[in-house]
Amino acid sequence: MIEQLRQRARELLEQGKVALVIGYGQGVSPRTTFPVFIKKAEEVDRLIFNPFCRNNLAVYLTRKDIMPKGAVGLVARPEEVRSVAVLVQEQQFDPERVVLIGVACAEPGKEGAACELLKGRTLKELEAEAAQGLQGRDPGRDVAERLRELEAMTPEERLAFWEREFSRCIRCYACRQACPMCYCESCIVEKNQPQWIPSSPRPLGNYFWNVIRAFHLAGRCIGCGACARACPANIPLDLLNAKVAREVKESFGYEAGFDHEVPPPMASFRTDDKQEFIK
């Protein structure tokens, strides 16, 4: 499988279809991987793929200091496919500039789990593969379980739960930096005239920050979990985002990242909107 992956990358670079391939490379231990940036066909052997490839590489597609003038090849797990779908929906780049090399792992994080190259070549085809649940894999199994526990709490318990979790926030904004959807050139937390969000890592500002980020991701978060993995304080941000995603699904019947051709719910208006929030 890895040989096929390298072959695809080699072809793209040799034929000049892309100027850069972003994929995964082997870290110092067998269970660590990290993003690699391949500019020459002879370097494609640095590419690997295994169950420990967990970073969402789509985060680099909106970084000006990384993106080449030409097109870029992206090793894309279902998480990247769905992220690219949202970024294309939000017109962050010309879809022609991103060539996807679809990959999937049957059980991410599990030693020896089967990995394969996806058949689809276009974003449309890969979206369809991602929507099929990817060879029986349920990407949100663990989050779904925790979401059930969260929703079983009373509002007071939920408030106490989040207050406790957010109390550890050090306001490093690693969650934002790891997130492909946090591409704003100027983040609200950095605005200081007025200072919308107090910058000290104390309860009020911590609450504002984490809740505002979750709201900004409503209908956009694809649930890759990069924020939770990047968080040095182990705050379950994936759970917070899953809760918001659930609300969006119930209100608008919409899940982010499965179809780049439909208008996103938070950026469109429909006359048949139930508008249930107006009581």
Partner: peptide, 25 residues
């Protein structure tokens, strides 16, 4: 350093990094 996300975790967890900001609230 292309892969760096700019998250700052390294500096916040570093025992010897000391940069600080002063704000009025």
């Amino acid at each position: 350093f292309l892969a760096c996300l700019g998250c700052g975790t390294c500096t916040y967890q570093c025992p010897a990094c000391y940069c600080f900001d002063i704000v009025d609230e």
